[in-house]
Design a protein around this nucleic acid. Structure first.
Lengths: 195, 195
DNA sequence: AGATTAAGCGGAACCGGTTCCGGTTGCAAG
DNA sequence: CTTGCAACCGGAACCGGTTCCGCTTAATCT
């Protein structure tokens, strides 16, 4: 994230011009609708047209389709992250971990082709709090709860777990075999837990 | 795999016409060179031109870029698979497993963008022995060696391990963090081994 | 050799993502 | 209110993958 997106500021933190902000709103709702209806396969040109702007405008605000997707789903990701503390509060660490991992995968799989999101959601080197940082934080929270009761190996890094989950999402999306996801989550969980 | 590729037979097992076979050869060597030089990002049109044929010809023989990539690397994958028995013969099961997984990832990462291969290499429902079947077999071999000495959990399926490796490849390719791969291999290995 | 025809061929056309750029306009300074 | 200009706008153009289709030709039959 480089200071662009839904925060109403431009490239240098300067407030957006009124028309620009209006277009951003239109684009986001057109995108939300299109992605909900057709999945992330929806074409950017169609989204731009539905929003009543040209593709150029869309691309200035969201420099790639993936970033548009991320912006569209950012809120849902925040909700996902917020669930981590709640789960650790109400379940034993191992179960909380599993439950959250399932939600993560489920979210990623929700709309077909969601794997695109992942590349953006997990990839980023911006300065401010990013979506990715939130996710890492959520995992760190879950792992910490486990470590404090010695049920998770303390060498396991939150970031690596996140990446592993990302990998599972991609494969689940690519392949279509039923039962793959639970099997891979099991494998990952076994790798995290103390024996 | 549906009976197309480098076996010199057409869609119905009928032998290829002479010109077709010649073009297939040209395409494969042009592809090999292009992929080696530019990675799998090399454009199909360029490859067709280098081979002196039209894109249509390329597409009849290799119905998608991914299939062309797979055909180009099929031999290397076979070599990789062949290494599995050798490793189990010369190393303790856990080490053999780790060594092979490292080779797998290394191979996938060798040429940038190799993640494309994966989708084809790992996805397939053909009737005959496929590349994917070979890979699964290699993993099964490694797991069997481990199971016989009780160092690997017997519930772990070869296919799931292969998928997990696929996921790691994708993430390693997407992300660029050093140390990610070893960390993920560790995690996976811990998930496979008995404690 | 000549006819027949399925297989093969090339490349124009299409589609989706992305870039580029000449024209437009919100906004603030004068 | 006018003016200057940075920010913004739209869409044509480009690029890569894939499809389509009319023409060509290797292989086979007579």
């Amino acid at each position: 994230m480089t200071g662009k997106g839904t925060d109403g500021t431009g490239r240098h933190g300067r407030p957006l011009r009124a028309d620009a902000r209006r277009n951003e709103d239109r684009l986001l709702s057109a995108a939300a609708e299109a992605f909900a209806r057709e999945g992330t396969g929806a074409s950017v040109k169609d989204i731009a047209r539905a929003a009543g702007v040209g593709v150029g405008t869309l691309y200035r605000r969201f420099p790639s389709k993936e970033l548009l997707i991320e912006a569209t789903y950012r809120h849902e990701v925040q909700v996902l992250c917020a669930a981590a503390p709640e789960l650790t509060a109400s379940l034993p660490p191992a179960q909380a971990l599993r439950a959250w991992m399932e939600r993560f995968i489920e979210f990623m799989a929700a709309k077909h082709g969601m794997a695109d999101v992942l590349r953006v959601v997990l990839t980023d080197e911006g300065e401010r709090l990013t979506t990715r940082a939130h996710l890492t934080e959520a995992v760190r929270h879950l792992l910490a709860a486990g470590a404090s009761q010695n049920v998770t190996r303390s060498q396991v890094e939150a970031q690596d777990v996140l990446m592993a989950l990302g990998g599972i999402s991609v494969m689940a999306d690519t392949e279509r075999q039923p039962g793959l996801v639970p099997a891979l989550i099991d494998l990952l969980l076994h790798g995290i837990l103390t024996c």
